[in-house]
């Protein structure tokens, strides 16, 4: 036991040293940043800087311009792709199937190991409303947790199973957990110091130019950038409100994708190396990005 403890301490020290070195190296290399936009994190989705919030803030607003949806009208981007959330054709899509499969897994696993459900529910045997507070800081684990990270952690801790972030099963379970908060406004708690620190780091990443094309997220998703302009066949939209519908069934891809997988797809388009789902940089970016959806209702399952 003593030996194990020593080993763990050594590893922890090595990890800390590694992290320190990484940070120092990152500070030294030359990086460029897209000019900053004004964002007030306290305002959440309502603080949208694109001037489009009034078009997608709720069902009534979306209904007013339903003729723009799916059309070539130059205003169509102002709906922020929220229109598909309104359409209830009765058709089942892969997003619904993912939620059902996630639920089936959780029920079966919880029947064998009740601790699994309690772990997902953070002490309660209930998932209703849990996802609305994510990402959050877990004081016990001393870690920022996304829903996907919680799924991976609980599967490991309670089921002794590897359900890695980015795997189809992880995304399905995360989609189910999120669906249990559908309709509830997102409430990322910025009063927690580690969350605020992550928000600031994520904000910095949002403006950092990377890849062969030297693009930042902000190059396409801030006022004065490509946002609202045609990028060949697409029109980049506001980043506000976006996190609310992930994981989502992406029709161009044919798969249900987590937010981190979407980040990876964006980075590939920027000709930058994507990171692994769950990477600390992605977590910081998700904190920043989800704060831009604070106050906006979760919509999972969804289709885009």
């Amino acid at each position: 036991m003593t030996l194990t403890r020593t080993l763990r301490r050594t590893l922890a020290a090595a990890l800390l040293a590694g992290a320190g070195l990484g940070a120092a190296a990152a500070a030294e290399v030359y990086r460029e940043h897209h000019p900053r936009a004004a964002i007030d994190p306290a305002q959440g989705a309502a603080g949208d800087f694109s001037g489009t919030y009034g078009f997608w803030k709720d069902a009534a607003a979306l209904e007013r311009h339903r003729d723009w949806a799916g059309s070539t009208d130059p205003n169509a981007w102002k709906l922020n792709w929220k229109y598909p959330d309104l359409v209830d054709s009765g058709d089942v899509h892969a997003g619904h199937v993912a939620v059902d499969e996630g639920e089936r897994f959780v029920r079966r696993a919880a029947a064998r190991e009740p601790g699994f459900l309690a772990c997902l529910g953070e002490g309660r045997n209930e998932l209703k409303g849990v996802a609305a507070g994510y990402p959050k800081y877990d004081a016990k684990l001393k870690k920022l947790m996304t829903v996907e990270a919680r799924v991976e952690h609980c599967a490991k801790a309670e089921l002794w199973d590897d359900v890695r972030q980015g795997s189809p099963l992880n995304t399905k379970i995360a989609a189910y957990v999120k669906s249990q908060s559908a309709g509830l406004p997102i409430r990322v708690d910025l009063s927690a110091a580690p969350v605020m620190a992550a928000y600031r780091r994520g904000e910095q990443l949002f403006y950092t130019k990377v890849g062969q094309l030297n693009f930042a997220c902000a190059s396409c998703h801030t006022p004065g950038s490509i946002m609202g302009h045609k990028l060949r066949g697409e029109v980049p939209t506001t980043p506000f409100g976006d996190a609310a519908h992930f994981p989502t069934y992406r029709t161009p891809v044919g798969e249900v994708e987590s937010l981190h997988q979407r980040f990876g797809r964006c980075l590939n388009q920027m000709r930058a190396q994507p990171l692994k789902p769950g990477d600390p940089a992605y977590v910081d970016l998700e904190v920043f990005y989800t704060v831009l959806s604070n106050g906006y209702p979760i919509t999972v399952p969804s289709i885009r």
Binding site: A26, G211, A272, Q273, L275, K276, D279, A281, Y282
Partner: peptide, 23 residues
């Protein structure tokens, strides 16, 4: 798929995190 490891990337967990942007 394409490999963009030679270009700057986000974060510090991969070697590309230490690749400098060309001035």
């Amino acid at each position: 798929g394409p490999n963009y490891a030679a270009w700057p990337c986000l974060g510090t967990s991969l070697p590309c995190g230490a690749v400098a942007t060309r001035t």
